[in-house]
Design a protein around this nucleic acid. Structure first.
Length: 502
RNA sequence: GCCCCGAUAGCUCAAUGGAUAGAGCAUCUGCCUUCUAAGCAGAGGGUUGCAGGUUCGAGUCCUGCUCGGGGUACCA
């Protein structure tokens, strides 16, 4: 049909001549037909289907892997939330998205590192330390008040309590003491890591912005940019000619009001370390609120002489929280939010992960708390897991009946409509994995697994696997094992468990 | 003002520029003495926000609107 324009012929005519000129292999292709407005349909021969089932059984847990990544080094940077409070439901989307993308890239032959970048030196952290100090005073009987600027969360009272427990009133008049910020940071990071681990997410590295300063990289980059005439002075501040390197407008890199860098400079420097550390591909996952900052970072890297084509920036839209249909605004500072760990506790890891990943990252995710908490049985994740558990049950029964060994199964017996439809769906798995690896859109995989589960449930309802017909039973058991492998491999890529029983 | 994302069934959302736009939830009707009914079969429900354009072909690409979200700092 794409040729129609060039050849100035009707698509149907072209299709006819293509088919006429073909010499198809009857072992792979059963028949070929032309359909309006110009499609050519190939019917796969049953032998080819049988081959797919055998491949799945042979490769098992490895089935569906590809090597399109060619062992290239990839860094996936995500979450990167500063340690000012527990992770929110919003961070959850990014955490699950990033981890699933990392899993999919690994599955496609990339050598993946997960990294979390944070800054524990800014204004927000100072406020956090001061908020802890005030809570500490309150615990010691003073009636100091928190203002709107301060962090209101209950967790800060616990942290202050620990300081009081250990040191009594020693810091009563010492708001600047490092202990407040440090204790808060440590406790909060511990909480963040616990929450991530509850989601089966492990980072290879937590990269502290501060180390960029300690190693002198900030000054070094600033100097190199200056040497390339990519910066200029205006109003006593140092500006970066971002506009000359593809960004919208020039930006301040070094403030004049305070003698310190804006966040852009360390961001640029941090990204340069990724090049220096030898990553061939860099995936950055940000929330929609960051979309304006990355063009500056890319411009900075271009100014330093890097090709930014290997940086893939994925922007996900916000999670809109509603409670019983009503929307509400959330802020870590005001502590009027539901934490990610509370959510995990309510609905479980599998539901949380699946819920986040089943929608495209470009659309807003509507998370109704009442619904998420009561959804339980209706949640689509159970539909997939149920298919897996059902197969486990069949296999247990088969083993009781002495049908465990299916090596001599005659797969040509698998010929009914629902059966072929199931095999056909199975055969798409490898392609879907590769597609996901290229687009980095995990919801393609969830949609596929839904289809596979549906095909299985339909098959299950109509065709009994274990029957008196021993040969047929063995053939169907083989098929069902293959389905289970693909379901388990797919669920594993999403970080969702594949239970034996439900 | 300018920039980014969205708008698809009552609700939440799918859909490499391809065939009759699909799921789940909700509503209605059937199916459990047989491998797990957390399932299956069926019904109803659509001018894919509006107006143009490109194309053999547009939910998908382009232009202009409308509405919603997020940005647009010498905050991160």
């Amino acid at each position: 049909m794409m040729l129609a324009g060039h050849l100035k012929k009707a698509p149907l005519q072209i299709a006819d001549s293509v088919v006429g000129a073909m010499d198809e292999n009857p072992e792979l292709i059963e028949k070929v037909e032309v359909k309006a407005p110009g499609f050519i349909n190939f019917f796969i021969a049953p032998q080819a289907f049988q081959e797919i089932i055998q491949q799945i059984l042979i490769k098992g847990k490895e089935y569906g892997r590809s090597d399109i990544g060619k062992s290239k080094k990839v860094m996936v940077e995500f979450v990167s939330a500063n340690p000012t409070g527990p992770l929110t439901v919003g961070h959850g989307r990014q955490a699950v998205l990033g981890d699933s993308i990392a899993r999919i890239l690994e599955w496609n032959g990339y050598n993946v590192d997960r990294e979390y970048y944070y800054n524990d030196a800014g204004r927000q952290m100072r406020l956090l330390g001061y908020s802890t100090y005030i809570r500490y005073r309150q615990l010691l009987g003073f009636d100091d008040k928190l203002t709107d600027d301060h962090y209101q969360g209950e967790y800060i009272i616990d942290i202050a309590g620990n300081i009081k427990e250990q040191f009594g009133d020693r810091f009563i008049d010492d708001p600047e003491n490092e202990i407040f910020k440090k204790s808060a940071e440590e406790a909060i990071f511990e909480d963040i890591k616990r929450t991530l681990s509850d989601l089966d997410i492990k980072f290879d590295k937590f990269y502290n912005e501060k180390s960029l300063y300690d190693e002198g990289l900030i000054d070094d980059v600033l100097e190199r940019l200056r040497a390339k005439n990519a910066t200029y002075k205006k109003d006593d501040a140092i500006w970066f000619r971002a506009g000359d390197y593809g960004a919208a407008e020039d930006r301040v890199l070094w403030k004049s009001v305070v003698d310190e860098a804006t966040y852009r400079l360390p961001d640029i420097v941090y990204h340069e370390t990724k090049y220096k550390r030898g990553y061939d591909l860099m995936v950055d996952i940000f929330g929609a609120d960051h979309h304006a900052t990355y063009p500056d970072v890319l411009a900075g890297l271009r100014a330093l002489g890097y090709d930014t084509e290997n940086i893939k920036v994925l922007i996900h839209q916000f999670v809109t929280l509603t409670r019983a249909g009503e929307k509400f605004k959330m802020s870590t500072r005001k502590a009027n939010y539901v934490t990610l760990s509370e959510l995990i506790e309510e609905v479980g890891k599998d539901v949380v992960r699946y819920f986040y990943i089943m929608r495209g990252m470009k659309s807003h995710l509507n998370f109704d708390l009442e619904l998420a908490k009561t959804e339980g049985d209706e949640n689509p994740v159970f539909y997939l897991q149920y298919a897996h558990a059902r197969i486990s049950s069949i296999l247990r029964n088969a083993s009781v009946k002495g049908l465990s060994n299916t090596d001599d199964a005659d797969l040509s017996l698998l010929s009914e409509e629902e059966t072929l439809a199931l095999i056909n769906t199975l055969s798409e798995f490898s392609e879907v994995c590769i597609l996901c690896g290229k687009t980095m859109e995990p919801q393609t995989l969830t949609t596929y697994l839904q289809r596979l589960a549906t095909a299985f449930h339909k098959f299950y309802t109509v065709r009994r696997v274990i029957s008196n017909d021993k040969a047929l039973s063995k053939a169907r058991l083989t098929l069902v094992k293959a389905v289970q492998i693909v379901l388990a491999n797919g669920l594993n890529l999403l970080g969702v468990s594949a239970p034996e029983r439900m």
